[in-house]
Structures are given as C-alpha cells and as structure tokens.
C-alpha cells in the first residue's frame, strides 16, 4: 500500500514562493560570502597542499604485499583475495617453493601476483579476507601510469610498495 504523505498546509504568502526563494538565496549567498571573504575554507589546493600527513591509519590506498621481520614473503598464494575481489583486479598463479629454499616448509608462494590498478576499487576486501596477513592497503593513492600495462602492479612492485611489516602473527614459526 502506498504511503500517503500529508502535504503541509501553506499560508497564502508561502504559495507565492517568493519568501522561499529569498530564504534559499540567504543560504546560498551566506555560503558565497563566507567563502569569498575567506572566513571559511573547506577545500584543499590539491597538488600544492596534500593530505598525506593527516591520512588516518585505516586509509585505504593501493593494496600491496608485505614481507615480515624475517624477510619471508607472507603471501602463500591461497587466492582468497583473487576470489573475493569484486572487480576481479587480482590475478595469481601459485607455485611450489623449491626444497632448497629457506622457507621450503611453507611450500607455496605466488609465482605471479598481479593487481590491475585500473580495476581496483580500493574496497579492502583482499586485506580483510587474507588468512596470512600478507596483503594490506597502503596509503599510496596517486596511482598513475601512461599505459594499461603500467597500471598493473606485478609481484615485485607490490612488495616494493608494501615493504616490511612487523608485529604480525607468525604462523610459520619454528615449531611448524
């Protein structure tokens, strides 16, 4: 059933619209003069002024892979981020870690880890879903490139952005 909205009963002068127009103009002109007289400043002049210093901890910038204190790449290529990624920006091919590697006991790592930053919507689902605390959204937001290929972050680039992250849960400890 449709909801019947009761219309307000207007006075005769309100029917003329003119008082409404005037009060509306008072609002707009109020903003106008506040900005023109520089009493108020809301926006930032982007390339000169930047927000970087004020970015909150939870800021969602470019997703990146991290290594831990021991220099281990944390990603084990479980492909959950690839699965959860709403715009399907992530493409992973796993591989087996060779037995002579220091971290051979982890067994699996990404051979190829591409994030297409043209597709990425910075939703942070990859970070949320990651069971290994390997992917984090960093504060990099100005992701630019002159070609589509350049906008695809490969594994090396992702580790470069991500850097080392300390204090994470260490699942693959010595007992393992």
């Amino acid at each position: 059933m449709a909801i019947v909205v009761k219309r307000p009963k207007l006075k005769w002068w309100e029917h003329l619209y003119i008082p409404a127009i005037i009060s509306g103009m008072r609002v707009t002109l109020g903003h106008f003069f506040q900005i023109v007289s520089r009493k108020k400043k809301v926006t930032m002049q982007y390339p000169e002024e930047k927000w970087d210093a004020h970015l909150p901890e939870h800021y969602r910038g470019a997703p990146a892979l991290v290594t831990d204190e021991q220099g281990r790449e944390r990603c084990v290529a479980c492909q959950l981020c690839e699965f959860i990624c709403p715009p399907r920006a992530i493409a992973i091919r796993p591989e087996e870690i060779p037995s002579d590697d220091k971290w051979a006991k982890v067994e699996k790592r990404p051979k190829k880890f591409d994030i297409d930053m043209v597709r990425c919507i910075y939703c942070g689902m990859c970070e949320e879903v990651c069971p290994e605390q390997a992917i984090f959204l960093r504060k990099d937001y100005a992701i630019t490139g002159t070609s589509r290929d350049e906008m695809v972050h490969d594994k090396d680039r992702l580790y470069e952005i991500g850097g080392v992250r300390t204090g994470l849960v260490n699942k693959w400890n010595d007992l393992k």
Binding site: E82, F83, P94, E96, E107
Partner: peptide, 9 residues
C-alpha cells in the same frame, strides 16, 4: 595439480 589453481575458480 599441486598448487596450480584453487578448485573454486
């Protein structure tokens, strides 16, 4: 097939 692809894909 080991470590090639997740089954759900």
């Amino acid at each position: 097939f080991r470590f090639q692809m997740r089954v759900w894909f």
